[in-house]
Design a protein around this nucleic acid. Structure first.
Lengths: 247, 247
DNA sequence: CGAGGTGTTGAGAACCATCAATTGCCGTGG
DNA sequence: CCACGGCAATTGATGGTTCTCAACACCTCG
């Protein structure tokens, strides 16, 4: 039972040692499973945000449609992420959530968070920190969206890789990319046409290598210098956390 | 002593009734005061984020410098805001913090948060929610930065007004704007030159009116339609909050 | 009175968008 | 097995929004 079959627990254990009670609280979030097909809408902007989700399998993303029809993808979600937290403060979904490929999510009610807040200050602090880091990631996106197209693409690739490394330690420089070029464009503020042109250029320059749905960062250091990338996911400052509750 | 002389307490009281212990916990954050001069740097990106701040007087902003020297202002802070929360997860400041005008901040150590997490789940939930809303605000910024220059400026003005309304109920359509046009440009991804051109246009069209440092939104509805603005600050969903602790 | 910051205005250039056409791939159905 | 449709990616020509550079007016403050 202490065996980890949840990528969320695995992801969180990367930062602190979870108590038995913490694991029980977290297991509660993954009781239920719902599958979604590629392209399917999971939650619509404006709808009541009744529950949150733990991502179990497959990539998903949150986006918003501009008045002229273009999309802005705000965040790409991976297995182990908690989805819909941002809307907790509003009660209404501020973004539309969609499956980028076939995916499985675990919906859970908001009251489950109440349990966590009341029973484990330490786990609460961890969830708080993870949320804060998402915020930093958003401000990074805001920063990179003002750079040139090349730099934006480089940033996106490095960031995806860094995030995949947390749950999957043996991800090094090659990973699977289930997003279309339109998705990529909507994430960094470019058209699919220009994404194609830039990626073709990057490949011609020997910085990346594409084979099917796999992508390889041939020269990650060059990419990093290009867009001034810093990995936000490797560590988390837990110095200020409350001590574990003594049972 | 229950008299509110803190704009942070006033801001938070806008959403829930604070217990006596909550007020004590919050008062602890504002024990110390530090003044800053207009343009002065409060915290530098990369430095150790030793403490957080409560903004007491004056506008400040967090920004990051691009490789070519341009700035991206990520967030504009008003009195009553808590500054530096985002960096709590990293231990290092991810953004530089600067005073947009003469300002007074209250620095407090991270351990003060530990107190709050341990003693008041309800106040913790409130701080968590306020943070989540900042996150939504950031995703709004990401959204608006893909629109045209006119729309970006309209959004910024509406957003500033909505935020000022929380602490200052009688702010209606006229408010003081201490930011330079360079600041405004850096906040929404434009040059000071273009900000000037757009604002001159907006004024010629009768949408806004400038007199000195004051700005008046003459036709807020037209501005709202223009950039699809929604006010995030009026309410907060507190339905899931833990119950107050019984003393 | 001079200096520096702030805002305004104009001319030209750049980056990326838009539009359009083509290729390749895959799953579907005849 | 092949024809077909649709999606994804590619490539080229043209154009627009905003940037860059530059000059000037205004105000405040030393």
């Amino acid at each position: 039972m202490t065996q980890t079959d949840s990528c969320m627990v695995e992801k969180l254990s990367h930062y602190i040692t979870l108590s038995e009670d913490d694991r029980i609280l977290l297991a509660d979030l993954e009781k239920e499973e719902t599958p979604y097909r590629r392209g399917e809408e999971i939650q619509h902007r404006g709808s009541e945000a009744r529950h949150l989700f733990v991502a179990k399998r497959g990539w998903t993303y949150s986006f918003r449609v501009l008045q002229d029809g273009r999309r802005q993808i705000v965040r790409i979600h991976h297995p182990g992420d908690i989805l819909g937290l941002g809307d907790l403060a509003l009660g209404t979904a501020s973004l539309t959530l969609r499956a980028a490929e076939d995916a499985v999510l675990c919906p859970f009610p908001r009251s489950a968070l109440k349990q966590i807040f009341e029973r484990s200050p330490r786990l609460t602090a961890l969830l708080f920190s993870v949320t804060l880091r998402e915020q930093v990631a958003l401000s990074d996106t805001l920063h990179v969206i003002r750079m040139t197209a090349r730099e934006r693409i480089a940033f996106l690739l490095l960031d995806l890789r860094a995030r995949l490394c947390i749950t999957n330690r043996h991800v090094t420089d090659t990973f699977r990319m289930p997003l279309t070029q339109s998705d990529i464009g909507d994430a960094v503020g470019l058209t699919n046409v220009y994404v194609s042109k830039v990626m073709t250029m990057l490949e011609a320059e020997g910085l990346i290598r594409r084979t099917g749905a796999m992508i390889r960062l041939v020269d990650p250091d060059a990419l990093r210098r290009m867009c001034d990338y810093t990995d936000r996911y490797r560590t988390l400052d837990i110095g200020w956390f409350p001590a574990p509750v003594i049972d």
